Simulated assay, not measured.
Amino acid sequence: MTASSAKPVLVFDSGIGGLTVLREARVLMPERHFTYVADDAGFPYGGWEEGALKARLIDLFGRLLAKHDPEICVVACNTAFTLAGSDLRAAFPDMRFVGTVPAIKPAAERTRSGLVSVLATPGTVRRAYTRDLIHSFARRCEVNLVGSEKLARMAEAYIRGEPVADAAVRGEIAPCFVEEDGRRTDIVVLACTHYPFMANVFRRLAPWPVDWLDPAEAIARQARRLVPPLDGVAPGEDIAVFTSAGPDFATCRLMQSFGLRVV
């Protein structure tokens, strides 16, 4: 296959947090072009009823695949993939999906204290998928699930350059830090792709140093394994699609800074 005949890599998120994954994917797949899709009309996913959100995702991907015909779909959203990943694969068996799940296995392998926290959305915390990951890979650890109602919105604001109060952020991350029998939490899994954009803020406000585990690079590596390399550099442009069809000026400017044309 030549670059001129290449299909795009589709990166999907509920909002703009999936840009963390896009950033890593571009490094590993420089010859590919990308279509970034933000379901901002449905954001945030944390408060959705599961059946309604699953139906929305199946319907939305049906339209996205028909319109953009991607080589592969990277679902850069923990809430979406832990809920509907298997359903998407069943509904679209000819498409390859790379999912995003909480990085509980690598956290369990790296922790020294045995105290691990998972900072996520309420939807991801509720998922049986998340509990199964803990049962399969972290039974020797004490895993503290922290479902933040507000942090995804804060991260969206922060990414756009809007001010976010330290006290508000500190209140959302505080439950991640546990002290028990002389041990302290030493790893916090960032189980929402929005959160790595605020990692420096988290580090500054944390009561003690921890490893903030960002899964973006691992997701990009998996996508690279599944996408065939091309001869030459892809000439196609990278675009951003918003389901609301009306992103604000700050969001459009952010997309431009990532080299994405909003369509």
Rank of each mutant, 00 (worst) to 15 (best):
A25C: 12
T185I: 02
C73K: 11
A90P: 01
R140M: 09
T130E: 06
T82G: 13
M198S: 06
A240S: 13
T185V: 06
G171H: 08
L60N: 10
G18K: 01
D39M: 01
E156T: 03
I187R: 07
V143E: 15
P102N: 11
A41S: 06
L83C: 08
D238P: 10
E31F: 11
V9Q: 00
N144I: 03
P215F: 00
R110N: 15
F43E: 06
E172M: 00
E71V: 14
T121F: 06
R224L: 02
L10C: 08
P196M: 10
L205Q: 07
E142G: 05
P228Y: 14
W48T: 04
R160P: 05
E24Y: 11
L53F: 13
L22M: 10
N144E: 05
I16V: 05
D39K: 02
F249M: 10
F202I: 01
L28N: 08
P122R: 00
F197Y: 11
I134L: 15
F12L: 02
D69S: 09
D186R: 03
R225C: 11
V188D: 05
R127W: 07
E142C: 04
L65F: 12
E24H: 07
L226W: 08
A240E: 05
Y158M: 10
D214Y: 00
R203G: 03
R153F: 00
L119P: 08
H68C: 09
H33K: 13
P215M: 00
V178I: 15
R160T: 04
D13W: 07
F258Y: 15
I173K: 00
P228H: 14
R112Y: 04
R26S: 13
A216D: 00
D211G: 02
G161H: 05
T82W: 14
L254T: 14
R160Q: 06
R203K: 07
T2N: 14
F12I: 04
R110K: 14
H33I: 09
N144R: 13
T130C: 09
I72E: 03
A152E: 11
R140F: 05
M154A: 12
V9G: 01
D238Y: 06
F177K: 01
A199P: 01
A120C: 14
D40M: 03
M255H: 10
G17A: 04
W208L: 05
F61C: 13
C176V: 08
C77N: 12
D166C: 02
K150H: 11
F61E: 08
E172I: 04
A218R: 00
G46L: 10
T20M: 02
V188F: 01
V9E: 04
G62K: 13
A80E: 08
L226N: 03
L83V: 13
N144L: 01
T251D: 06
